[in-house]
Design a protein around this nucleic acid. Structure first.
Lengths: 111, 111
DNA sequence: TTTATTTGCAACCGATTGGTTTCACTTTAA
DNA sequence: TTAAAGTGAAACCAATCGGTTGCAAATAAA
């Protein structure tokens, strides 16, 4: 199934998993130990994360280590970037307003 | 209902709405014109966006203009920031590797 | 080999989702 | 006042979601 990063990070448990394996790759069992769900539920989350390539499998014997693909998070970063200029300009506008206020204040107080 | 920004941006239509009203506030009817759904469906999306404060209502007569609250998108930005150092360090490591390669190359070629 | 461990997958279940149609409310226009 | 326009809310529906239990496959250990 075609998966979407935005849909993947919509679930709080998946965000927690992402955060958990960010530091180091972990096996499904090890991950499941950190949550109040079954291993199979975690496995389903990992499947979704894998499908959208946020996570990569690393088989080692009978264990499978799941590693975060940090680069994939740039999908979100890029979407967000569309608005960064917007909110920065908003703040610049605010700066301008504040500057104007200060000016008029000086003006009213002037000599 | 308690709403989450991550859940709000999970839906592609909602992301499109966000992008659409980023430039300027719009009414539900005007927004619905851009999509292949009913006005009521858009209305439900706007409700969700409003509940998580990604969007603000601005009643003007019998019309209601919906305006994007860009600042709220920092929730996502901040979550992402946790990993930025991570992926930058990854790239730095790569830079180091490349630098080493170049050095050894120079070394092997050196006068 | 036999047994235990680690894992994914299928089937099922209640809750939620995104959509529709219908209706009621408010404000503008005739 | 009456009619039209703009909107939100409720009821309903098929599809999806996140969770569970049970099972099969593969590898490691006895």
């Amino acid at each position: 199934m075609r998966r979407d990063v935005f849909q993947a990070i919509a679930d709080p448990t998946r965000r927690a998993i992402i955060l958990l394996i960010a530091a180091q790759a972990m096996t499904p069992n090890a991950i499941a130990d950190h949550f109040n769900t079954t291993r199979q539920a975690v496995s389903k989350h990992l499947r979704i994360l894998t499908e959208c390539e946020l996570v990569q499998q690393e088989p080692r014997g009978r264990e499978i280590y799941y590693q975060l693909q940090v680069a994939k998070m740039k999908d979100v970063e890029e979407w967000l970037a569309q608005f960064r200029t917007l909110w920065e300009s908003r703040f610049n506008e605010l700066d301008q307003v504040l500057a104007d206020m200060k000016n008029s204040e000086i003006g009213s107080v002037n000599e």
